[in-house]
Computed example of a mutant assay.
Amino acid sequence: MIANLFLPAHLKIGAGARHDIPSVLKQLNLSKPFLVSDPFMKSCGYLEELSQTLVRADISFGVFSDCVPDPTTDSVNEALAGWQQGNYDCIIALGGGSSIDTAKALSVLARHGGAMRDYKAPNPVPAGFPLIAIPTTAGTGSEATRATVITDTESQEKMLCMGFGFLPVAALVDFELTLSMPYRLTADTALDSLCHGMEAYVSRKANPFVDPIALSCISSIAANVGIACAEPHNRVAREALMLAATQGGIAFSNSSVTLIHGMSRPIGAFFHVPHGMSNAMLMCEITRYSIPGATSRYADCARAIGVAATAERDDKAAYRLLDRLIEICDQLDVPSPRQYGIDRDQYQQLIPTMAAQALASGSPNNNPVIPDQRAIEQIYETVYS
């Protein structure tokens, strides 16, 4: 099988990388960026810091700072209206996955027009305006992927849009921006990364380039997420999670996500559950369901996080992984949908629709065990409580 590999042309990784934005713009021959960020980045001063860096370099720019969690077509259109007020040649995204996903959508719509639904997978995505991503959470890996997820405001469908046009040309990965992340955000984004690494490794589209990156991602998160949650200013743990997040993004963007993400998006769209948390709600039960289809691969994941010996039988090792995932979710207080407060009747009523949307995303077809509608509905029913 021939693997198509996609990576940002420029990756700067390490403490203080965010300050190199003027030199990155110069290297890319770009001169008038449009900043895309969110109210939290504005309130905590990071957007002002970035703005001052550009001012000192005598670079003019525009700003849109109203990105919303789980970006919608309405919020993307607001960003597009801001873009149209100036003659910009590139976009800088500062924030978590929501800001970067908004910026990705903007880059394509600003150049090619149309509606976001026109770029929903598997539709092709032409190259948009150049995008430079500066992630501020250690989780989505969006700074290194060719994917964006935008909720259709009208239908409430969380649309997976995938294509080369969404890949940032550069990413500045600076773990110092994550030192202020609160406990819940730290846990949820790290669990998102863990799913990225594990899904990329067990996916039917896995390849030799992705495999070691995915295993490194899994190992780092398992070793450091507890420390980072307990000690928010632990620079070693924060740096490890930030690197793992980028590795996870590279891994799934060059392999694929599987059933976890396919089923997670509808939960997030209908019930406004944070993305990493909705992944974690599903992760253990879907792993249990999928182990028979890739036992040796799940066993490798168990060995990567240190819960199984090299010589241990694959079937035993794979279920040790499941035990450890359950333990991690317990330690990080991952709720079930019921514990999160989702109404049972509404949830049950939406199960067929959520299952249909999960299948339509295409992600379940990459799973080690390919489910049908009824199998997905059963998993939704199981994880509720």
Rank of each mutant, 00 (worst) to 15 (best):
M1A: 14
L11C: 12
G14E: 03
A15V: 13
A17H: 01
H19M: 09
H19L: 12
P22T: 01
L25T: 00
Q27L: 05
K32D: 00
P33K: 01
F34I: 01
F34M: 04
E49L: 14
Q52S: 05
V55N: 06
R56D: 02
A57S: 11
A57M: 03
D58I: 07
S60A: 12
F64N: 11
F64V: 13
S65E: 15
D66S: 13
C67K: 11
V76F: 13
N77W: 07
A79S: 12
G86R: 11
Y88F: 09
C90A: 04
L94G: 08
L94E: 12
S98D: 10
S99T: 13
L106R: 00
A115P: 02
P122K: 08
P126M: 13
P130H: 03
I132S: 06
I132C: 09
G141R: 09
E143Y: 07
T145N: 08
T148F: 01
D152W: 07
S155M: 08
Q156V: 08
Q156R: 14
M159P: 03
M162G: 06
F164M: 12
F166D: 02
L167I: 02
A170L: 02
L172Y: 00
V173W: 10
D174V: 04
L177N: 06
L179G: 06
L179Y: 09
S180Q: 15
T186F: 10
D188V: 09
G197Y: 06
G197F: 05
M198K: 09
E199S: 05
V202Q: 10
V202G: 06
S219R: 15
I221Y: 07
V225K: 09
V225P: 08
G226S: 10
A228M: 09
A230Q: 11
P232A: 08
P232M: 05
H233M: 10
N234I: 11
E239Y: 13
E239F: 12
A240Q: 15
M242F: 15
M242S: 15
M242K: 15
I250S: 06
S255F: 10
S255I: 07
G268M: 02
F271W: 04
P274F: 01
A280G: 01
M283P: 02
T287P: 01
P292T: 07
T295F: 04
R297W: 03
R297P: 00
Y298Q: 04
D300F: 03
D300N: 05
D300V: 00
C301K: 04
R303K: 05
V307E: 05
A309E: 13
A311V: 06
A318C: 05
L322A: 02
D323R: 11
L325E: 08
I328K: 03
Q331L: 15
Q331W: 14
D333I: 06
P337N: 03
Q339H: 13
Q339M: 14
G341Q: 04
R344E: 15
Q346V: 14
Y347I: 03
A360C: 10
S363R: 07
S363W: 06
P368R: 08
D372V: 02
Q373P: 10
R374N: 09
T382K: 10
